[in-house]
């Protein structure tokens, strides 16, 4: 589904990603770990098409298409979703209305009719129940004044509405309390099927207890320095990053 080949990328001419190759197939879960500042969020932003970040070499194919030629909107419509590490606040725009806009953009792309607010409200309620979210998420403005954890839950709600083919969750677990982590993880698991894939960026083994990765990659200074199975995350948890990052 996703094929990253020797990707070099950064912003303002600074190279942050220094040659990453990664292949993600349908149904797979990949965890990406690594020290602060190693380039994990940069990689996520490159994948989702943030205009401030540029590819400086290599290529990214998504279901055979050249991802780097698509803008963020097209990538989203093609089925890529990024759960932001720091979701932005948008005062004045109602959360439910935002979600409906996003949902309808997909429907329009698929040649379907837009969903009216009443029908959409039913869909939204269903997804919110699944994620154990209170009604206030509908009424409030987009992330406006949300707590750190509330913002993360709201990202997963968006994922539930958009049903992406490939979701990249950037530290969605950070900021969630223990109960919320469980509920959100269960929600993510329910959204999984053999046709979609997940890239989880995280610092904590705990998330991986709930959502079991097929592969774990360690990113350091813009490169994948180690890849392995679930066990790698456990080793990292007990030993830290030094042993993998100094090996190279």
């Amino acid at each position: 589904m996703l094929e990253i080949k020797d990707l070099h990328a950064g912003f303002d001419g600074n190279e942050i990603i220094k040659g990453i190759s990664l292949s993600v197939k349908k149904g797979e879960i990949h965890a990406v770990m690594g020290p602060n500042g190693s380039g994990k969020s940069t990689m996520a932003k490159i994948l989702s098409g943030h205009p401030a970040y540029e590819a400086m070499g290599g290529e990214i194919l998504f279901n055979g298409e050249n991802l780097l030629e698509m803008d963020a909107e097209q990538r989203s419509l093609a089925g890529i979703f990024m759960g932001f590490q720091y979701p932005v606040e948008v005062p004045g725009v109602n959360n439910a209305e935002f979600l409906r806009m996003a949902h309808n953009a997909r429907r329009v792309k698929a040649g379907e009719e837009e969903m009216d607010p009443l029908d959409f409200d039913d869909l939204l309620s269903e997804k919110m129940n699944m994620l154990g979210m209170e009604k206030k998420y509908k009424e409030r403005n987009l992330n406006d004044g949300f707590s750190g954890g509330e913002k993360k839950k709201n990202e997963i709600l968006q994922m539930a509405i958009l049903e992406p083919k490939l979701a990249i969750l950037d530290e969605t677990d950070s900021g969630l309390d223990i109960d919320a982590l469980r509920v959100v993880s269960e929600g993510v698991n329910k959204l999984r099927n053999e046709n979609n894939a997940l890239i989880l960026i995280t610092h904590y083994q705990r998330l991986l207890d709930y959502i079991k990765p097929d592969f774990v990659h360690v990113l350091s200074k813009g490169k994948i320095v180690k890849s392995g199975g679930k066990g790698l995350a456990l080793e990292l948890e007990s030993q830290g990053y030094d042993w993998v990052t100094t090996e190279n």
């Binding site: 205009p51 401030a52 963020a72 909107e73 979701p87 209305e97």
Partner: peptide
């Protein structure tokens, strides 16, 4: 720009994003 990117990354066009922020 980050607000607009947020909308775009959800498949919402830039034009609709600006319209939503302004009308809000």
């Amino acid at each position: 720009e980050d607000q607009l990117f947020y909308f775009e990354s959800r498949g919402i066009s830039r034009e609709n994003a600006i319209e939503a922020v302004i009308s809000g």
